[in-house]
Design a binder for these strands. Structure first.
Lengths: 213, 213
DNA sequence: AGCTGTGAATATGTTCACAGCG
DNA sequence: CGCTGTGAACATATTCACAGCT
């Protein structure tokens, strides 16, 4: 292992994920290698940025040729922690939960949803594909017996903090949080927020601000 | 208008949205004013950051007291462009589209979904609340007649680019994109990506990387 | 010749620390 | 005296530009 020890920034990691996707697309299109410029176009960044990001992990590129698609794809996959299997639980079987459960990219990446929990007694007992929705009360037990490492949190804002804390106490180490609240959790838990309200408001800000120029 | 002209960064804008939410929460809890430290806690940042961010738009705070919740809330609302009404179309009536259509925060913010389009003939004609899902072919016409400014794009990755380009040609100026593709559009269109695959992979990266330390 | 890898230059964002107001 | 507002110090991220490999 000659992985360089420089910790990449949060945004660099997000770009790695975009590069991985671009490589998959290009490979499907029959390409074999790609210059930084092309990856930049597909990932919405600049060629220099691509080279900086990738060079932080080693020398993958071939001068004069670009980056070999297949081997770089494999390497990014590994770097992003996708070679390993992750056991995921979905908490909240509402509309957002349903959308995420079906999200094709999650399955394609090998994320295995091994349990679903919901507080609504009308939903518990129902099956989604081959998984039975279990009551919220069984969450801790289920997380432990299923060895869940990551939780996708898709519950209402009002219960998110409590539910997240319970999931953590049951041993979860990562949370993808869709609830619009800032979770207060111990620092050894990795939390990533997906905040659609914030994204939409960032958009209206730009549109609103633009008229002034 | 004494708005200072400094253009805030992308991440500063996102924080403004979080401060707005925090202020709404605090107001609901009966608070009247809040020091930067409290806003920071609720928004997941630091007190200094809160003060810097807010001071870029004027002097809202009261020394010794903190920030007056109600008036700051109103001001942030205005700054984020939320005072104005936005006419929104939802493109793609699949699971993600359904989840977004019901997302409580969107309605609460006054975003009005005035049209829904989908390519699937099985879905067109169906009503969601009081809106009939229209066929994709009617998109341009519908966007124009309904004076749609913002599109929420929730279609499969394969059709996203084409559909987005059509929406833009019909006059849309902002897109909230849920499709996992980098849209290639003219620079006068504001695009904001919500990429769940990227978020999840940023999480696995951190979890994976952590073991090495 | 084409394109990477990378130091150096620049730009941007964050934290510190404290003067000064209420 | 508490807490904001803000320059100055620091830290990070991005872009430039070019030497050097293939």
């Amino acid at each position: 292992m000659t992985t360089s020890p420089r910790k990449p920034s949060e945004s660099a990691v997000r770009r790695l994920s975009l590069y991985l996707r671009a490589l998959e697309e290009l490979q499907a299109e029959g390409e074999v290698s790609a210059p930084s410029e092309l990856l930049a176009l597909r990932a919405g960044t600049t060629a220099a940025q691509v080279r900086k990001d990738l060079s932080a992990f080693g020398s993958f590129g071939r001068r004069g040729l670009g980056y070999p698609i297949d081997s770089l794809r494999v390497r990014l996959h590994e770097i992003l922690g996708l070679s390993r299997k992750w056991r995921v639980a979905l908490i909240g079987a509402g509309r957002i939960g349903a959308a995420l459960f079906e999200y094709p990219h999650f399955r394609k990446r090998g994320f295995e949803i091994v349990a679903i929990f919901d507080a609504d007694p009308e939903k518990t007992g129902t099956r989604w594909r081959d998984i039975t929705i279990r009551p919220a009360a069984e969450m801790e037990e289920g997380i432990q017996s299923e060895k869940v490492q990551i939780v996708i949190l898709a519950v209402p804002a009002t219960s998110a903090q409590t539910v997240a804390a319970r999931a953590v106490s049951a041993g979860v180490s990562g949370i993808l949080n869709f609830a619009p609240v800032q979770l207060q959790l111990p620092p050894n838990v990795e939390v990533n927020d997906v905040d659609m309200a914030v994204e939409l408001e960032a958009l209206t800000f730009s549109l609103h601000a633009r008229k002034r120029s």
